[in-house]
Design a protein around this nucleic acid. Structure first.
Lengths: 357, 357
DNA sequence: CTGAAAGCGCTTACAG
DNA sequence: CTGAAAGCGCTTACAG
């Protein structure tokens, strides 16, 4: 049972506080907001603060927003991301950064191939609520053309560049991440490091293979037959691994390490290794990419992989957006600069030095 | 390049529309909102609508909210759900239902073990924005005590009952889902159906094993040694499957079907089957639970499992909440009723009739 | 140091 | 059928 009073009692407003403290609403507003260039006697300040606390006064943000023309709300449009396994952390990063700044996040989950109407409709809903700005998080494209409406507000992009070059963006440094995997494998003593590639043409595929090739070439270890292409799924990883490993040949013929485009492919590679009687990591080291739950810790041994900086991208986005919002008007100046965030290796159990041969 | 005018042009307000149409703002408001018990000449109506369309008038929801004391915004508090793999669909279901009703969803991602302050802080942010009500989505508990503040507003619970019995709730019908799996397996001809259980004491564990036992007993097939407990992870599934299958015994000794508490355990069971040289589904049928991406379609053969009604629970929640909000004041009357939603089997490739013995 | 008053953009009795 | 006016709860020049 609850005290009904809490439910029904009228909201206390700034006027109630003013009355209780025996001052004007102006003064209440000033002391509660610490309005700059305003002096109020210490005595009055404490009287006001006490009154506010006693009454449990909570300013109505709607009213404030109406008056100040700033809602303190930012919209996060996620392209399927809310229903995509790995990117809830974007939301988390954005939300924590928003909370620090007193901003509220309103999330719009747009479809990957948005129905022509629904996304603008949701976007409008937020604009009608005077959202101060927008973050558009894509599932990873090169370039994206953001909804027309977004150009009228401060905006920031996650995972893609703006085709019109207007909007700041952030994305993972796939290339550096892949390069660091090769470095790590090389340092562990591997010489024949294969790559299970995939052919979809997105930044992730290009960046990862570029990082791989670059380092393999630099180390003088690159060979065409070390990379095979397949679908970016477990089944593709199985096929690629079979092609790479099943030459009936022992090392040095056979690769001692297999770097997979993503964790799903790595999962298929585990199955291939099992069928070929190869023990991981003794006979074969495997590295994935994405750190896609729950794969890495569901495999045996647990999969060493590369994490995407989802949390960091979310936080970066609201930080940048919030700067844009502050510096209204000239926010175009920041322009199209695009930031790359590091992808750290998550070390687990699937990498070991190659067996002595 | 964008037309700067769009960026800088002052927002058009209801007054501009009134001026353009040569009527009062009262009239504009009436025709645009179709205010009941109000008649306006057809001619005036069209004039107003045209003027609004020409000017691209979009009502300021902040102002409307301030006036009507209803923000049209509902808060969705998710306990780690935004960063949990399988429940983005709750958000999606809630969002689509909200959009249909002209409501906007604001999402708060609370931690599983919330820091004592952060969650109430976010909740307050939404209350200060005059949210009309709240949905609290838990990761699955029996009962939960919702934050004190929520009791002051219409509210609805996903995945748990309210300890105080005040708040309507919805959850998956785990028991019926598990029962339907046993029925399906029985119908396929299996007699020895094992269950890989887990011992954490949450509704999901109890409901699933209850459904299993109930049907096995009804069919006269229940045996204690058909169920073994392990951790609810791939490693536990591996161990349980090994214990169940590795008696060196062929059917009819050995179970021909294995129902796993969740998909992660099923994943471990696949590995055990492979090591034991058992082919799925020829030698062993496996069924999981959760339909947790990307496991079911990353396994070979793809895993038959049971889906949780996330989308439906999300939609149910906003529908119910919206009813509560409409019927303000007496919303307590709806009270603690708790709704169960069906968990459908998703048929894939891991079930077949038992091999003839 | 403090306050009266205008105004943010709407809706809604109420009057005509 | 239509409109003038009050008011939702704040903030902010401006005056004193």
């Amino acid at each position: 049972m609850r005290t009904e009073s809490r439910v029904t009692r009228k909201q206390v407003g700034i006027r109630d506080v003013a009355a209780a403290a025996g001052v004007s609403v102006t003064t209440v507003s000033h002391v509660l907001n610490d309005t700059p260039h305003t002096r109020t006697s210490e005595e009055t300040r404490t009287r006001v603060k006490e009154a506010a606390a006693n009454l449990g006064y909570k300013p109505n943000r709607l009213a404030r927003g109406l008056r100040t023309q700033a809602s303190g709300m930012v919209g996060l449009i996620t392209e399927e991301i809310a229903i995509t396994p790995y990117a809830g952390r974007i939301i988390q990063g954005a939300q924590e950064a928003a909370a620090e700044r007193g901003l509220t996040l309103a999330i719009i989950n747009s479809a990957l191939n948005p129905a022509p109407d629904i996304e603008p409709q949701l976007l409008r809903a937020l604009m009608d609520r005077q959202a101060d700005g927008f973050i558009y998080a894509t599932v990873y494209h090169d370039e994206v053309v953001v909804p027309e409406e977004m150009h009228a507000s401060p905006a920031v992009l996650i995972g893609a560049r703006d085709r019109d070059g207007d909007i700041p963006s952030v994305m993972p440094d796939e290339r550096a991440g892949a390069a660091s995997v090769v470095d790590m494998l090389l340092a562990a003593g591997h010489k024949r490091i294969a790559y299970a590639a995939t052919s979809v043409d997105v930044p992730a595929t290009r960046g990862r293979i570029a990082g791989y090739r670059e380092r393999m070439i630099a180390a003088g270890r690159f060979e065409d037959r070390l990379v095979v292409e397949a679908e970016a799924e477990a089944s593709g990883g199985y096929r690629a691994a079979m092609a790479l490993l099943n030459h009936g040949a022992a090392p040095p013929q056979r690769p001692t390490a297999l770097f997979c485009y993503n964790d799903r492919m790595a999962m298929g590679a585990y199955r291939a290794a099992a069928e070929l009687g190869l023990s991981i990591p003794r006979d074969l080291s495997i590295v994935g990419f994405d750190d896609q739950a729950p794969i890495p810790y569901s495999l045996y041994p647990e999969l060493t992989t590369v994490a995407l900086p989802h949390y960091e991208m979310g936080a970066w986005a609201v930080e940048t957006l919030s700067a844009l919002v502050e510096g209204k008007g000239e926010y175009r100046l920041l322009g199209a600069h695009s930031t790359l965030l590091a992808c750290p290796i998550v070390h687990r159990g699937s990498v070991a030095p190659p067996a002595a041969t």
